[in-house]
Design a binder for these strands. Structure first.
Lengths: 346, 346
DNA sequence: AAAATTAATGAAAGCGGTTACATTATTCTT
DNA sequence: AAGAATAATGTAACCGCTTTCATTAATTTT
């Protein structure tokens, strides 16, 4: 069943059927109705493939995500998916598993006529191969929008967040509560958010005249196990910090795991502020302060950015649109912070 | 840049180029190498769209999931995605948000020549419209594989799990620990897993001569808030149950939330076994026994099933392949269960 | 009512691949 | 070395839609 069959049934040419299907106008109402009815009755669905080939444009967008199971990314995907369906776009999901070769393979496999645009949360900040691929897509008129993680020395469109400021606020809060020995479990500094959050941490300390201590900056690589061990390292120090800033959600969980396993108690033994909220944690009465941000919206907006860019992909290619989402501190159990202030001053 | 350009550069016909690209053989090695080199140098990527149109088959599969943010589904997606990339398939992600109309809209929008197969976790057990759509796809030779949730009176291929048995084992375990007043917070009985888990619960009680009590079976609809309120209801009863079986991960969390908020303590005040594990809960030292199953594998296998079915979609259409994944009970903090056994016997 | 304008429709050439079939080149027989 | 068999390559139609341009029908103008 194709457009010719429909045309035959309606005694018109395929061109007319096509006009009706695409609401192109210039068709007598009777004719249009007749055709619509036939389409309805036969259950005919036009071939998207043929249309794509003919028009040279598809309705598909590719979303490349480094960790399918991380709820942070699921939220972004949700935002993307909702907005994409508003635009009648379909979303291809690709997981790079934080593996840069895999990311390259995915990019390489993307036949440019299958997709209208690319949304990507890149694995690395410094990866010029990925950057090269992405640039080539842009040159072909396929817009690229980065999410959450920027790529160094490039100016792709993107939706990011105020990582530096978020981290700064968190650490500042800890300082104001009386902490001086504040550690950070960093993400990979090959990722922009990892780097920026570290910078926010450092700035907060410096602005308050607290010297940076090498041993208080340990890497958790944004991963649970690594962060667990990072926490272990911190607690093995001669001078154990009184507070920790954790650079992402998995980092926070890793540290919490260590804390629980060691029989330590939040607030009493250690203060903690994390980056990114963890679902259900608050519900389950585990009160951890965190730096929050509009995650769903970031996906949603990325899709909008892509769409805008797609529509005017020929004009002003010069203007790069980059959005930076605000972050905010969510204090939980902070009364207790203050209550136990004395304890923190080891 | 298309196949004709490459052909021209190589002084051959497009047919030969096509043969090389698809490893069809019957090409002299010299020629093949020359063509390969040119493809390499020019960075030419064949149009998947054109290929799809020509061959009448795409490399895309559609995955329809009811809740993008539920980690259970993320795991399934991960399994699907990994296996799909092995087969060189691309995965379209669609979220139905547990909304049956949305599900219909998605199904209706799927142009059958854009996809090779459909993986779906349907919203409802009883929805004949969805069933009808799916049947039509099957008739067109587009295989359909259900995951986790079956559809009544239909025999689609699928990967499910032993819901009845899982629930049975959980409740049996509670009974053997001495509990007699065991409640269930059910999922929607319009979903097969919801129904089957309820049946497992009932069978366990009956087999042990414990009468069913209407007020001990309250609905949480597989949702967090509803389950929270369901728990509240149970604790407002004259005769509060000593143990609860929760029908899915969100249900468990809802109940845990209520327990925490009410200052109650697991084991001491109430025993709990849930269906499906919750990431990090165990790590965070919240010891909840649960019925587990191979979630990632279910996605992985669903993809395999689809692939098998696609390959032999013409022969034995009669044989429906249905896999049922085993479930197993993960006991956590069970020493304590025994320790506090007396308390359970209110 | 004829001419001019505008609306409705159709014919046919793409879009970029694949592939059946025809043709030419190469190797094998005897 | 001529003929048969096989390998390599090319030609051209086709997949199902869109769209330009030409054509025909319907309206409007005068």
């Amino acid at each position: 069943m194709n457009i010719y069959d429909i045309a035959k049934l309606a005694n018109v040419s395929p061109a007319t059927v096509s006009r009706v299907i695409n609401n192109r106008g210039n068709v007598k109402e009777d004719t249009a109705n007749k055709i619509k009815k036939i389409i309805e009755n036969t259950g005919y669905i036009p071939s998207a493939t043929a249309r794509n080939l003919s028009v040279g444009v598809s309705k598909n967008i590719a979303f490349i995500v480094p960790d399918i199971e991380n709820p942070f990314f699921s939220k972004i995907l949700h935002g993307i998916s909702d907005r994409a369906s508003y635009y009648n776009y379909n979303v291809f999901m690709f997981g790079s598993d934080e593996n840069i070769e895999k990311e390259h393979r995915i990019l390489k496999s993307l036949s440019s006529d299958m997709i209208l645009g690319i949304l990507v949360i890149p694995v690395s900040h410094d990866d010029m191969i990925t950057a090269q691929y992405l640039k080539e897509f842009e040159e072909k008129g396929i817009p690229v929008v980065l999410i959450d993680r920027d790529i160094r020395n490039c100016s792709f469109h993107g939706v990011f967040s105020e990582d530096e400021d978020g981290a700064y606020q968190a650490v500042k809060c800890l300082i104001e509560e009386g902490h001086k020995d504040i550690a950070i479990i960093t993400g990979p500094t090959t990722s922009r958010p990892g780097l920026n959050r570290l910078m926010g941490y450092q700035r907060a300390l410096q602005e308050h005249g607290i010297p940076l201590r090498e041993e208080y900056m340990v890497s958790g690589e944004f991963k649970l196990e690594e962060s667990y061990h990072a926490a272990k390292k911190l607690f093995a120090l001669n001078h154990v910090p009184t507070a920790i800033f954790t650079s992402n959600n998995l980092t926070t969980i890793g540290v919490l795991q260590f804390i629980r396993e060691s029989g330590l108690k939040l607030v009493r033994d250690i203060s903690l502020i994390g980056f990114d909220d963890i679902d259900y944690l608050n519900l389950l009465n585990i009160k951890v302060s965190i730096v929050d941000r509009p995650i769903y919206d970031m996906g949603y907006q990325a899709m909008d950015l892509l769409q805008n860019n797609y529509l005017k992909r020929d004009e002003n290619r010069l203007i790069t649109q980059r959005i930076s989402a605000k972050t905010w501190l969510v204090k939980r159990g902070s009364e207790k912070h203050i209550l136990f202030k004395g304890v923190n001053e080891r």
